[in-house]
Structures are given as structure tokens and as C-alpha cells.
């Protein structure tokens, strides 16, 4: 449905520490809820989030069913080199959602 939302400063001074915010649309079905007929609704969550800069891992997270629906993840980055930030979210169903942003260090 909706594309993931990311907030990355357009540019940063070398050495500056910036915050990166991410938000993705996902129900994060826990696997413990039951439907109206009493059947367990199967678990379907995003289980892994990663962020790379120029293909080098800078931050990642393993998520469990206790992460809220429409997961929010914010972290920081020290501006050292310009390049491409790649964000990926891995779904239990095998799908991977991704987006990217340019990061300019001056």
C-alpha cells in the first residue's frame, strides 16, 4: 500500500550526528490473536530492519511481535561520507520492502 516514510537530512557537516527516522505501514500480526471463529490468526510481522550506507551496514534491528503496528524506528548516524542510504524491511512472508535516500556530507 503506502511507501515507507524516511526522514534523512539532505546534507550534514562532516562529523555531525544526525537522526534518521523511519516508518512503515504493517499490521505486525502477533500470531496470538484469534479471529471471530476462534482460529489463531497466523503471525506475520516484519522481523528485520536494516540500514546500509554505500552497502556497508550501519544499523539493523530484529523485531518481534511486541513491536507496534506500523513500526517506527529512529537511530543516528555520524556524517563521515556521502553516499546512498538503503533501508530494507523483511517480512515473515518472504517479501522485502526497501527504499533509499541520498546522504550528502560536506
Amino acid at each position: 500500500m503506502a511507501k515507507p516514510r524516511i526522514k534523512v537530512p539532505k546534507s550534514a557537516a562532516k562529523g555531525e550526528i544526525v537522526e534518521i527516522k523511519t516508518l512503515i505501514s504493517h499490521k505486525m500480526e502477533t500470531g496470538i490473536r484469534k479471529d471471530r471463529d476462534g482460529n489463531i490468526i497466523p503471525r506475520q510481522i516484519i522481523n528485520k530492519f536494516t540500514c546500509t550506507l554505500n552497502d556497508k551496514m550501519v544499523f539493523s534491528a530484529d523485531w518481534y511481535p511486541a513491536v507496534s503496528a506500523n513500526p517506527y524506528m529512529a537511530f543516528h548516524l555520524r556524517a563521515s561520507e556521502s553516499g546512498k542510504l538503503n533501508f530494507t524491511w523483511q517480512d515473515d512472508n518472504g517479501e522485502t520492502y526497501s527504499t533509499s535516500a541520498d546522504f550528502n556530507v560536506s
Partner: peptide, 12 residues
């Protein structure tokens, strides 16, 4: 707005 999860649906 970047922390507001409603913005995902608004983007749509």
C-alpha cells in the same frame, strides 16, 4: 509528521 503513523495512509 514524521512520527505520525497516519501520514502513511495520507501519502497513499
Amino acid at each position: 509528521d514524521f512520527e505520525n503513523p497516519a501520514m502513511l495512509v495520507l501519502d497513499y
